[in-house]
Write a protein that binds this DNA or RNA. Structure first.
Length: 492
RNA sequence: GGUCACGUGGCCGAGCGGUUAGGCACUGGUCUGCAAAACCAGCUACAGCGGUUCGAAUCCGCUCGUGACCUCCA
C-alpha cells in the first residue's frame, strides 16, 4: 500500500484537509446520484467520472470502501416545468401512466452510458421508493424532537428551531438572517403551510396529478427530496460517515438540508468530508435545458447532435473530463474534444510502443520521478490533469527510446509499465477501446494487403502502393511505414 | 438584490509568492519514394487599474466580464 498522504478539499471548511477516515481501512462514501427522469448528459458524465476518479484512487490507496449512490425514482416525475405541460400531456398516456416504466428505462440508459465511460458501479445503489418506511420513521423522529411540524398533511423542517441550537448554512456559507433578507427582496410566493419561507418539506401531501403516492401518518403523499439522501446514506454508512459528494449546484439547498435533517435527528456530525464537483459549460455558456444546448452522452458517442462535428468515443470523453480538475468548470467544444481525442490516441499509442521496447543497460531518465509526481498530484485533491501531464512525459520518453534517442534499463521499463498500468488504467480509469474488428481473418487479409504493397514499394511502383494506402484510408485504416516494417490500425 | 466561485498564450487546461506545466493547433528541422507517425527546436500568456512585497498569474482593493446557488427546482 502506498503511503497515504491524501489531501482533499472539504467544502465544509473551504480548505484542503488531510483525509482521515473514521475507521481505517474502511471508508464510507455517499454520492448523490441521478434522478432518472431523462437521459444522462455531459454534466452527469463529468460528475460521475469525477467521483469515479476519487473512488478509484481510494481503492488504489488500499482503502476498503462502501460506495453508495442513490438512484432517485421518487417525487419529481409529475411533469417537467421547463418543458411545459403540453409536451408531456401530448406524449402517450402510457408514458405518463406508469412512472416506474420511465424509471426503468432511464436507469438502464444511465448505466449504459456510465458503463461505457468505464465508471465503476457503486457498492449499493439504493432507491428511495424502496426506503419509504425508513424515511417516514426519520420524519417522525424529527417531529418528536420538535424539529419538524405537520401542516395540512405535509411535514416541514423547522429551520429556525434547528438554527437555534445548530448552524444552518454551515456548508454553503449562508446564514438564516441573510436568507430572510434575500427572501424579502425577492418577494417569494407565500407558502402558506410553512412557518418560514426557508423551511423545507419532509413529506408532501399528494395532489391528484401526482402519480407516486404512499401512505404515511400524515397523508397519502411522497417524501421530500432531501430526506432520501440523509436516510439512505445513514442506513448503509452509519450516522456519521466519511465522504459525501455531489455536484456543487446541490450544495444549497440539498446538501445543507441533508445535514440539518441528519444532525437534528442524531445529534451527531453527518459527513466529515464534503466533496463537490463543478459544472460543464458549452462554448463558454451554461449547459441547460432552457438554452437548448444540452448534449446527451449517447449523442456524444454517436455524434448525433447539431452541436457536434463528429462522434467522440467514451474514452475520449473521459480523457477530456480528466484533463481538467474536478472542482473546475469544464468548457466543452468540438475543438477541445478533438484535441482530447488526439492526445488520448497518442497516449495509448505510446503504451503499445512501450510493450515493444528493448531494455538497455541503464536509463537516461528518472522513471521514479514520474511515478512520484503522479502520486503527489493525486494526493493533492485528486489532480488528474497533472497526472496526465506526467504520463505525457512518459510518452515522450517511450518514443525517444523507440527512436534510439534515449534508453531505459530493464527495471525502469518494468517500472514505467507499472506506472502506466496503475495510473492510466486503475486510477484514471481509461482503457483501450476496441476499434473495429481485428479477428484472425482480418489480420491475415491485412497481412496480405500490406505484403502486396511492400512488393510494390520495393519495385518503386508507388502508384500501386499509394493507391492501396489511399483506399485503406477510406476504410478508416491508417498505414504507417517505419524501418521495422509497416503497421496498420483501424479507427472505428 | 444577496451569497460564493472564476477570468491564463490560437483553443482546452494546470498553477496556491521566486523555477519550462501538459495536451491540441501552428512554424522550422530530422526521418520517409511521398505521406503519416515519431523525435528535436520555436511560439511563452496570465481581464483592466491601483496597492503590498526585494520579487505577484499567485496576496489586498476597485472596475469590467462569466458562472453557480438563493427552498419544492434536480
Amino acid at each position: 500500500m502506498e503511503e497515504k498522504k491524501l489531501i482533499v478539499y472539504n467544502t465544509l471548511s473551504r480548505k484542503k484537509e488531510k483525509f482521515e477516515p473514521l475507521n481505517p481501512p474502511h471508508v464510507g462514501m455517499y454520492v448523490c446520484g441521478p434522478t432518472v427522469y431523462g437521459d444522462p448528459h455531459l454534466g452527469h458524465a463529468k460528475s460521475y467520472v469525477s467521483f469515479d476518479l476519487i473512488y478509484r484512487y481510494l481503492l488504489y490507496l488500499g482503502y476498503k470502501i462502501r460506495y453508495v449512490q442513490n438512484i432517485t425514482d421518487v417525487g419529481h416525475l409529475t411533469d417537467d416545468a421547463d418543458q411545459g405541460e403540453d409536451k408531456i400531456a401530448k406524449q402517450s398516456t402510457l408514458e405518463q401512466a406508469e412512472p416506474m416504466e420511465l424509471v426503468e428505462r432511464y436507469m438502464a440508459n444511465y448505466y449504459r452510458d456510465m458503463d461505457a465511460l468505464n465508471i465503476l458501479r457503486a457498492s449499493i445503489a439504493p432507491r428511495p421508493s424502496g426506503h419509504i418506511p425508513e424515511q417516514i420513521e426519520s420524519i417522525q423522529k424529527l417531529i418528536d424532537k420538535g424539529f419538524a411540524y405537520e401542516a395540512n398533511g405535509s411535514v416541514y423542517f423547522d429551520v429556525l428551531v434547528y438554527n437555534s441550537s445548530n448552524n444552518y448554512g454551515k456548508l454553503s456559507g449562508r446564514n438564516v438572517e441573510e436568507m430572510e433578507e434575500g427572501a424579502a427582496n425577492r418577494e417569494l410566493e407565500k407558502q402558506s403551510d410553512k412557518r418560514n419561507p426557508f423551511d423545507f418539506a419532509l413529506w408532501k401531501k399528494a395532489n391528484e396529478e401526482h402519480i407516486m403516492q404512499w401512505k404515511s401518518p400524515w397523508s397519502v403523499g411522497y417524501p421530500g427530496w432531501h430526506i432520501e439522501c440523509s436516510v439512505m446514506s445513514q442506513k448503509y454508512l452509519g450516522e456519521t460517515f466519511d465522504i459525501h459528494g455531489g455536484g456543487i449546484e446541490n450544495a444549497f439547498p440539498h446538501h445543507e438540508c441533508e445535514i440539518a435533517q441528519a444532525e437534528a435527528e442524531t445529534g451527531k456530525p453527518f459527513a466529515n468530508y464534503w466533496l463537490h464537483n463543478n459544472m460543464v459549460t458549452i462554448n463558454g455558456q451554461k449547459m441547460g435545458k432552457s438554452l437548448g444546448n444540452g448534449v446527451f452522452c449517447d449523442e456524444l458517442f454517436t455524434g448525433d447532435n447539431p452541436q457536434l462535428d463528429k462522434a467522440y468515443s467514451p474514452m475520449t470523453v473521459r480523457f477530456f473530463i480528466l484533463q481538467s480538475h474536478y472542482r473546475s468548470t469544464l468548457d466543452f467544444s468540438n475543438e477541445a474534444l478533438e484535441a482530447a481525442e488526439k492526445g488520448y490516441k497518442r497516449l495509448m499509442g505510446a503504451l503499445k510502443t512501450l510493450e515493444t521496447l528493448q531494455p538497455a543497460r541503464d536509463s537516461s531518465f528518472d522513471i521514479n520521478q514520474i511515478r512520484q509526481n503522479c502520486l503527489d498530484a493525486m494526493n493533492d485533491d485528486f489532480n488528474s490533469p497533472i497526472v496526465i501531464a506526467n504520463l505525457f512525459e512518459g510518452v515522450k520518453l517511450i518514443n525517444s527510446v523507440k527512436d534510439g534517442k534515449a534508453q531505459m534499463s530493464k527495471d525502469d521499463l518494468a517500472a514505467l509499465r507499472q506506472t502506466f498500468n496503475d495510473f492510466l488504467f486503475d486510477v484514471l480509469g481509461l482503457k483501450e477501446e476496441k476499434t473495429g474488428q481485428s479477428d484472425k481473418l482480418t489480420n491475415d487479409l491485412m497481412g496480405l494487403v500490406i505484403s502486396i504493397r511492400k512488393e510494390a514499394r520495393e519495385n518503386k511502383d508507388f502508384a500501386t502502393s499509394d493507391k492501396i494506402r489511399d483506399e485503406l484510408s477510406r476504410l478508416n485504416i491508417s498505414v504507417k511505414d517505419s524501418k521495422d516494417g509497416t503497421n496498420w490500425s483501424h479507427d472505428g
